[in-house]
Structures are given as structure tokens and as C-alpha cells.
Design a protein around this nucleic acid. Structure first.
Lengths: 123, 123
DNA sequence: CTGGTCACTTGTTATTTGCAAGTTACCATC
DNA sequence: GATGGTAACTTGCAAATAACAAGTGACCAG
């Protein structure tokens, strides 16, 4: 999708709205979180505690790939198997996740911040 | 809602998942954005460029109020009219919005960062 | 008493989600 | 070589959610 094409579907030129167009749902950023935590495979994402439905997972991975946030590579030829990893664009989401973790840590009772996300690990 | 009650509905103890349970949709953070930009009334939120449907707006304001992110006050008795404003918990979302703005500014072509959100205005 | 504003609510249709099951392509064991 | 298992998906369908249009109630102004 080039810029003029994608422009046709922009809700607005607001940066917040544009982030929400890609990440504004209950699952997409959980996949990004898993990628940051070192997971790379479909089955690993599917096994995360929140229990993402597999059709949603496949759809979100496709969208993230199209958006250039992740890349899909074959890690095995026979049988063909894939792994996913964050691009630079994807890794640049870390400050956003960091801010989310900080907010939840302060305001949501009962959350457990896993070590990787503890404040200071992002930059 | 007390903690034991809310715990029953937690998808997980992950901070990211908890933020998404409240803000993981296409509209909620746009209302927060508008509040940060100084808007306070239902009609002002409804007039924002993205065109939020009014039933969604009413629903999201209710959820934000229940979550303690905004407070609703009468600014007029006859006829009774309300205005909304962010609580401390709501203002603490600013680093998250800031990170979203920074990401979009860097990675989404065609976004226009309004002055209030320019890097350095948050703290 | 007619028209207009504000803050919603209601009804209906369209879209998205959630869940279960099925598929394809292999490898490993009996 | 039949049975079972894993990985990475896809498909079908019911249920939940969202979008759009219209309606409501309480006022105020001319």
C-alpha cells in the first residue's frame, strides 16, 4: 500500500487515531508484547495466557506484516514453518508498551510486571 | 467495583492486557486525547474529525467514568448539562499518548502532530 | 408556539469476534 | 504402512459489538 492509497483510508491525520487504526484492539499489542519477550512462533503466541483465538492471531500477524511491524521468515523448509520477528518499526513500539506497563503498575491493582518490562529496561 | 470483583474479569495479570481491556478499541483514547486538548463536553467530542457514533461516545464516557479516568460534573442546572474532565489517573495516560504520537510521527506518513502533543510538552 | 441546542437513547443493520472443528504437510513409532 | 503427534493455519457459524439514522426530553429564544 503506497501513501496515496493508504491516505484514502485514514480516519484523520491525528497521530493517535493512526496508531489506533493499527493497534486499537484487544489483541494486536499482546502479540507485540510476546515478540518483545522473545517469542517468535505462531504456536507460542497461541499459548499465551490470554488465549487468543487462532483466526484472530493469523489475521493480526498478517496485518502486522503488511504494516511492516513484523517480518515472517521460514525457519524450516520441510515441513515449511515460519517465525516472526519485530522490525525496527516494531521495536519502536517499546516506549508505548513501557508507558502502558507503567500506567497499569500504578493504577490497576493486581497486575504483575514481568522482569523484562520493569522500568529502565527500555530505551 | 472493588478489587476482588474486578479480578474476576481479568484476562491476565499482564499490565499490557489490563490496559487493553480498558483502552483497546478505536475510540476510547481519542476521547482522552480530546480531554487533554481541553475539550470537556459531549458535543465537542462528537464533533471531532473522526466522527465517533454518539452511542459509542456515551458508552465510552460511562466506562471511563466507572474506571475513574474521568469525572462528570454538572456545569448547569436548568437544563441539566454535564462536562467531563480527566482525573489524576486520566492525566497519567499522557506518557502513553506521547509515545503513540512519537511513533506515528516517525512511522506513519501524513500525520500532523498538533502543537499540544509536540515532544517535550508532556512530563 | 416554532425552531433550535444539548445530551443522550433506541432501533436496525453491518461488521467483527469467539469458539470449535477441519486442513495440510510433514515426522516418529509401532 | 497405519496411527499418532506437531505446527501453522483456515473455515463455519453463533454471538457480541459497532455503525448509522432517527427519536427523546429538557430547556431557551424569538
Amino acid at each position: 500500500m503506497n501513501q496515496s492509497e493508504s491516505d484514502k483510508f485514514l480516519r484523520s491525520h491525528c497521530p493517535v487515531a493512526n496508531v489506533l487504526d493499527l493497534f486499537g484492539d484487544k489483541w494486536t499489542l499482546l502479540i507485540v508484547r510476546d515478540l518483545i519477550l522473545g517469542k517468535t512462533r505462531y504456536s507460542e503466541f497461541a499459548q499465551s495466557h490470554e488465549g487468543i483465538p487462532t483466526n484472530i492471531l493469523a489475521d493480526r500477524l498478517k496485518r502486522l506484516e503488511m504494516a511492516g511491524v513484523v517480518v515472517k521468515k521460514a525457519y524450516c523448509d520441510k515441513p515449511i514453518r515460519y517465525e516472526y520477528e519485530l522490525t525496527g518499526k516494531g521495536r519502536d513500539l517499546m516506549p508505548m508498551l513501557d508507558a502502558m506497563v507503567a500506567w497499569a503498575d500504578k493504577h490497576v491493582p493486581g497486575v504483575k510486571v514481568f522482569p523484562y518490562f520493569q522500568r529502565g529496561n527500555f530505551n
